[in-house]
């Protein structure tokens, strides 16, 4: 049984169908990626899992328990966190305040050890703990967003385009940290447009196209797949 199981998930915005019955699973301790073009429904999937938008039909199971229909608060308490698209750090709060907000629902005792762990992963955040988050660079903000999510003791961390708008070197750094987080026992569900890095990092991949899953496979299989190379990796025929 997978940690997260999604069956026939359908989400509509008004009359527009964003997700047309997708099914996939995320196994524990794996890195799973959803790739796809703009408007394929990747972010919608994550928002639906987090309970930020209502679903039309289908089921979302976490550890065999029903997740859909729960409040976001309850979902975070279960150990699922989202690193939202475009980082969305709290710009006028300091780095430290941002991190503490990540632990909002957590026991106070876990804050100190988690903070230590985040500072070990991202020494840069420790240096800048007093600085307003809005004044950090894009890469540092992404690190802060990931660090903030880690403060919530996640079992499953979902990342929405962590490479968005970052320099290639920084993207590499972020992805090596994602691997490190995964090695510590956190399951990762990753959404990416940058199919190349995402598939290289992931154990499993799903390709999302206009609201349906068109292909699945291990990261390596998908990387070598001809259709994917043409569509997402910029290979010319």
């Amino acid at each position: 049984m997978s940690l997260l199981e999604i069956h026939d998930l359908k989400v509509c915005y008004g009359g527009i169908v964003a997700l047309n019955g997708i099914s996939f699973g995320v196994n524990e301790h794996e890195i799973v990626t959803l790739i796809g073009a703009n408007g394929a429904g990747k972010s919608t999937t994550l928002r639906a899992i987090m309970g930020l938008i209502p679903i039309t039909s289908g089921t979302i199971l976490y550890n065999g328990e029903r997740l859909h229909g729960l409040d976001t608060q309850k979902i975070v308490e279960k150990g699922i966190v989202l690193v939202p698209e475009g980082r969305r750090v709290f710009p006028n709060l300091t780095t430290l305040e941002n991190l503490k907000l990540g632990a909002y629902l957590q026991d106070k005792k876990t804050v100190e050890p988690n903070l230590k762990r985040v500072y070990e992963l991202f020494p840069r955040l420790k240096e800048r703990h007093w600085q307003q988050a809005g004044t950090l660079s894009g890469g540092e903000q992404q690190m802060l967003a990931v660090g903030r999510a880690l403060m919530a003791n996640p079992k499953l961390i979902m990342m929405d385009e962590p490479s968005l708008g970052l320099a290639p070197l920084v993207v590499k750094e972020i992805f090596s940290i994602i691997k490190k987080i995964n090695e510590d026992g956190v399951t990762v569900l990753l959404i990416e447009q940058n199919a190349n890095v995402a598939l290289k990092t992931a154990n499993h991949g799903y390709v999302l196209e206009t609201g349906t899953i068109s292909m699945t496979g291990t990261g390596r299989e998908l990387l070598e797949n001809e259709a994917i190379r043409v569509a997402y990796l910029g290979k010319t025929r």
Binding site: T72, Q73, L82, F90, P91, L101, R148
Partner: peptide, 12 residues
């Protein structure tokens, strides 16, 4: 600062 991010942190 950011309602969506706050909600994603589990703040009601």
């Amino acid at each position: 600062e950011d309602e969506i991010a706050a909600e994603a942190m589990g703040i009601s």
